[in-house]
Design a protein around this nucleic acid. Sequence first.
DNA 1: CTGATGACTATAG
DNA 2: CCTATAGCCATCA
Length: 119
Amino acid sequence: MDRVERANRIIATIRDIPPGQVASYGQVAEMAGIPRGARQVGRVLRELPDDHDVPWYRVVQAAGTIAFDEGSRPFREQKKRLAGEGVRVVRGRIDMRRYRWQPDLDELLWKPSDAWDDA
DNA sequence: CTGATGACTATAG
DNA sequence: CCTATAGCCATCA
């Protein structure tokens, strides 16, 4: 797997994060098939072209904090975009128990009938 | 090859 | 909550 492919998988994973939900750098890496690649995720995001439409703001640190310095331009931008989707940043933190992207749970919520078939 | 660098993370005090 | 420390790993000088 070369650099380009890793980047593509990371980008693809981030695109899959549903609006109103977030994922940590480490989570994105793991889901992209790159264990312990949190820093690589940050690198990819940092190197995206200016015009991209990747939902970068849905990626936050594992603790629920925004990776940029509080008060910085990107920090405010990210907080603003998240707020636009209903993700609140309270006292500098996002409640991960509530907003963390959980693919398994999403599936249950989206097509519950399938999961209940055998009942 | 070596060392420095991060949009990172986990743990300990 | 904060700092320090130690892992982590691709990339670059």
